[in-house]
């Protein structure tokens, strides 16, 4: 199978999965729903519409034979990996440690050669944003190593 058909395939699998899940949803008694529709009906209707459109898209691909999309550079995959790292650091240490590490590593990954610039960006940005949200907007951040020290 050509690479260009992967997108319609993924979309089809997604739509069928949604339909399958929608059929598992609870139904409401007639006296509540009345002449209207069940909770499952609308998503199923949407996915059927989507499947029709996917059919048209596949036909367009077959007729026009578009170029397959090139693989992303390592910067992109690296950035996505940093999102995962951010998740782990936020859950197990502190959100601001996560932000610091990700900004620092992202700067380096994207080509910043001056370590001190990356370090300053990673320190100053979350610091300023924290001050703005904490002092001005009065928003409390999730507890973690640093926030426990700050909130006490």
């Amino acid at each position: 199978m050509k690479n260009i058909y992967i997108v319609p395939l993924i979309l089809t699998i997604f739509s069928l999965a949604v339909i399958a899940i929608a059929f598992q949803l609870d139904t409401s008694p007639e006296m509540i729903v009345g002449d209207s529709m069940q909770a499952r009906s609308f998503p199923i209707f949407l996915m059927i519409l989507k499947l029709i459109l996917i059919g048209i898209l596949t036909f367009q691909f077959y007729k026009n034979n578009p170029k397959p999309v090139a693989l992303e550079k390592y910067h992109t995959w690296g950035s996505m990996f940093l999102f995962l790292l951010f998740y782990l650091l936020t859950v197990y240490t502190d959100m601001f440690i996560g932000i610091f590490v990700v900004i620092f590593l992202m700067s380096i990954l994207w080509g910043e050669k001056r370590i001190w610039v990356a370090f300053l960006t990673a320190t100053i940005t979350p610091g300023l944003v924290f001050m703005l949200f904490d002092f001005v907007l009065k928003i409390r951040f999730p507890r973690g190593i640093l926030m426990n020290l700050y909130y006490g």
């Binding site: 936020t90 900004i103 620092f104 994207w110 080509g111 960006t121 979350p126 949200f133």
Partner: peptide, 29 residues
């Protein structure tokens, strides 16, 4: 402004902005 400075800052603003809306980490994810 170099992209390697600008976009990491956008990342920080994005995740903190997403969290600040309701104060729940689910929004960040």
């Amino acid at each position: 402004v170099p992209t390697q400075i600008l976009w990491p800052i956008v990342f920080a603003l994005s995740v903190i902005g997403a969290y600040a809306f309701q104060g729940q980490l689910l929004d960040v994810w």
